[in-house]
Design a protein around this nucleic acid. Structure first.
Lengths: 184, 184
DNA sequence: ATCTCCTGAGACATGGATGTCTCAGATGCT
DNA sequence: AGCATCTGAGACATCCATGTCTCAGGAGAT
């Protein structure tokens, strides 16, 4: 059952995004299963971590797909991306914190692909005159992801209301990334 | 010699901010000392981590002091804070990533104090009409710290030029945090 | 009801990082 | 030179998470 695996992975994210060194015991309990069953599903800790990372990247890629970031106005595209990404902010927080993941060449390559897509979005926006050109597309991409991860942490710790998260993220980031049009 | 301890801590930050689970061996080598000497300076891993955290918070507090965040125009104050904080961005990145630190009540209290100071700065700025009031001071503080940490990571990994870091951070964050004055 | 499959609980074994110790060599001071 | 101090290298002991195994009990199917 793929659902089973994924539900365990979801629970693992909830624990690992806060405490990356959490014991398998803790993760198993959070998933509502025993350590033995956890071992039956995933060969070991390393495999579990990698699977969580892979899930995060799949969701990230899916968000880029559903947002249709290559189409139309780039500001609207970024807003769609935020909408699609915020529900998985915790997963992004995990990806941001677990630098060790990127030792795996497969994971690393997947990440590079997605990151390049985001950079391309910002570059396109800069060419459209929508995003500021004084800030490099690489930095915009980096900062955007940092803020998404920040939303994930803040929501998990109860410092930010989930309902506010999309708005807060969009307003703050777009305010800094959009060119001043002086039209309002 | 306090310098000695601090130089070891600096080296530890360089390693730990990237890989929080780095072995003591690795940290000792990065500091140019042996594992034995590392143990002579710090009783154990836990103590080392806590000292690094304490150093980070001291630097953070010092940056708030030298920036004089309670005086004058809040935008200028925030710019001064960025200037003072960016050199220690790696330390902030460590503080952001090592959630486990906040299990220590002493560390946690120190953090709360500094965070409250930053929140107060944003609140004052909102009352002055400088910062946007649609975004809560708590979120502004959170996002600000996330971006500082992001700068730390990006610079360490060579994705952002140190010379650009202050400008990139200030422009992006202030763009999103400042009220639109429509005067330029 | 019987059989099968799966799970949870617990008991180990294992491995690796950590913590402690010793000792030889280097440095620095008198 | 002689002495004290500090350091690095290595050899252990220890601890703890991980990994593996067994076994009893429950769920579901026939």
């Amino acid at each position: 059952m793929a659902t089973d695996r994924d539900s365990v992975l979801e629970a693992a994210v909830g624990v690992l995004s806060r405490r990356p060194t959490a014991h398998l015991d803790e993760i198993a309990r959070a998933a509502g299963i025993s350590r033995a069953t956890l071992h039956r599903i995933f060969p070991g800790r390393e495999a579990l971590i990698r699977e969580v990372g892979a899930l995060g990247l799949r969701r990230f890629a899916a968000a880029l797909d559903t947002a249709g970031i290559d189409e139309g106005d780039t500001e609207a595209a970024l807003r769609r991306l935020i909408d699609a990404l915020v529900p998985d902010a915790a997963l992004c927080a995990f990806l941001a914190g677990e630098n060790q993941l990127y030792d795996d060449p497969e994971i690393n390559e997947l990440w590079e692909i997605q990151d390049a897509r985001v950079r391309a979005l910002f570059l396109r926006g800069q060419q459209q005159g929508v995003f500021r050109i004084e800030l490099s597309a690489g930095w915009l991409s980096e900062a955007f992801f940092d803020l998404v991860a920040g939303v994930g942490w803040a929501v998990q710790d109860g410092r930010l209301a989930p309902r506010d998260s999309t708005y807060s993220l969009a307003e703050l980031f777009l305010g800094g990334a959009l060119r001043r049009t002086d039209k309002s």
